[in-house]
Structure formats: C-alpha cells, structure tokens
C-alpha cells in the first residue's frame, strides 16, 4: 500500500525537497572547497572546484589559533558545566517535587520566571558580581556562570519528568533502610535517563557555541580562550585573507558537526522534547 502510493506526485515532491536540501548545503560546500584554495584562486573564482588541495592553509591556522588549546578549553568548560548542571538541577528538581513546601514552590516559580530574562539584561551587572567574587578569568568562574544560567530550564525539565516517577519505588527502598541520598542516587537518578539526554544535549549545544559570556568572563585570560573566541579574534585580524579565515572556520565547525552527525537521532529528539516541554 505504502509503496504503491509512491507516484509521480511524490517523486516531484522528492526532487523538490532534494533541491532545497542542496540549497541548504551550498554554503557549507563553498566554504569547504574554498578553504583548500590559495587566496588568488578564491578571489579569481570562488565557485570552481579546487585544482590543488592546499592543506597548508590548515596547518598554518592550526598553529596560529592554537587549535588544540582552544578545543581543549571548550571541551573542558562544556563537559564540567554540563555534568554539574545535570547533577545539581536534578537534585533540586527532586527536592522541589517531593517536598512541595511553600518555599520550594516559590523557588520553582522564580526559576521558571527567570527563563524569560534575556542575557543582555544581566551581563553588565554580572561582570560586576563576578569580578567582586573573583570568578573572572578563571575556569571555575565561567563554569559557575553556566551553572547559574543553566539551572532554570534544566530544573524545569527534570521537574516535569520526576512528577511521573512512581513514589512506590522510593518507598520500597526507604523500607529497606536507604537514606534519602541513597534513594535519589540509586533509585531515582538512573530513571531520569530519557530527560537527562535532553538536558545534556540542550546545554552542550548552547555552552559549546556560546560567545558573549566567555568574552565577558574569560576575555582577558588567553589561556582559557574557547573555540568561538579564537575564531572571532582570528577573523578580526585576517578579514581579507579568506584562505586562512575559511580554514579556521572549517576547523571550528567540525567538532560540533561531528557531534551532531554521530548523535543526530538523540539530538533531534532531545531538542524537540526540550522545546515542546519548555
């Protein structure tokens, strides 16, 4: 039935959709092919396929932006932040759901309302607060900021999920003599896996790609420069040197694209779940 329905009309739609897909991919193609040309070749004809692959663009940019260092910084900041966000927000959501006191309900309301505050409305005062607490220019400082900004949505998502976890499971464990911490970490935490995937993916994409917060918090400390920061600085210095700029650009988008292509099923589902519930 399904197969026989594949008629001319569907075929036309298919061709149309594929053409649109090529249009969507065209920018990537242009950037990729031009990143291995010489500057002269790019300026002469940006649409042609490279005659010779100039990998030297990559090797020079690799050193110029210190790619390994920037990559490691981005990885470190993202991993640490996401890990701690998952831990702290799930614990908080558990406490709010299981002990719905007036105070805890108020905290939840505060967290949810804070989601609407745009980053620009906080950033200047945040610079002040973080300098006062000596968080600026430090790895733990930027992680602390991501923890703060990551809490509202993550607590909200865990909160919605924990409400569906049956209480009987926990009671059985409590009768067996587990303390509240044991109950949470051994019984509840593993059950949160589905929503945890969503929380991890949403936060990873955001933190990995973030630009403005790292500029404000670690801007001065070159040892902590993340990938978006390194590329932006490089672009500012080599605006007209497209051969190098494009190679740098490809290097910067490769990690996140690989992450997406490998985990795409989870990412698409996770992002959908996150936005539908959020």
């Amino acid at each position: 039935m399904k197969v026989s329905q594949y008629k001319t009309k569907t075929f036309v739609l298919e061709v149309l959709a594929i053409l649109l897909a090529f249009l969507f991919l065209a920018p990537f193609y242009l950037v990729l092919t031009n990143s291995v040309k010489t500057l002269k070749e790019i300026l002469l004809d940006a649409a042609s396929f490279p005659q010779l692959f100039h990998w030297s663009n990559y090797t020079s940019v690799w050193k110029m932006i210190d790619f390994p260092q920037a990559f490691w910084n981005s990885l470190q900041i993202s991993l640490l932040s996401v890990l701690l966000i998952v831990l702290f927000s799930s614990m908080a959501a558990y406490q709010i759901v299981r002990k719905p006191t007036k105070f805890n309900s108020f905290v939840f309301l505060l967290l949810v309302s804070a989601m609407i505050i745009p980053f620009q409305s906080l950033m200047l005062q945040l610079v002040r607060v973080t300098s006062m607490l000596e968080l600026r220019g430090e790895l733990y400082g930027i992680v602390a900021c991501y923890l703060g900004f990551g809490m509202p949505l993550s607590v909200f998502l865990f909160h919605g999920f924990i409400k569906t976890v049956p209480l009987e499971l926990e009671e059985a464990a409590r009768v067996d003599g587990s303390n509240p911490y044991g109950v949470f970490f051994r019984i509840v935490f593993p059950l949160l896996m589905p929503i945890m995937v969503t929380v991890v993916i949403l936060n990873t994409l955001w933190i990995w790609n973030d630009y403005l917060l790292p500029v404000l918090i670690i801007g001065g400390n070159k040892d902590l420069t993340t990938l978006p920061l390194a590329v932006t600085k490089f672009f500012g210095q080599y605006t007209k040197k497209w051969d190098l700029a494009l190679a740098g650009l490809v290097m910067a988008i490769t990690p996140i694209l690989l992450f997406f292509l490998i985990l795409q099923r989870y990412i698409v589902e996770g992002v959908t779940a996150g936005s539908v519930k959020g």
């Binding site: 614990m91 923890l147 703060g148």
Partner: peptide, 15 residues
C-alpha cells in the same frame, strides 16, 4: 537545593 540556589541566586538573581 543548596547548590542550585547558590549558583542561580549569585549569577542570575543578584545581577
């Protein structure tokens, strides 16, 4: 709830 509140209040609410 402590860790969540600590970071949220310092980083979001105070500013």
């Amino acid at each position: 709830l402590g860790p969540c509140l600590l970071f949220f209040l310092t980083i979001v609410i105070t500013p």
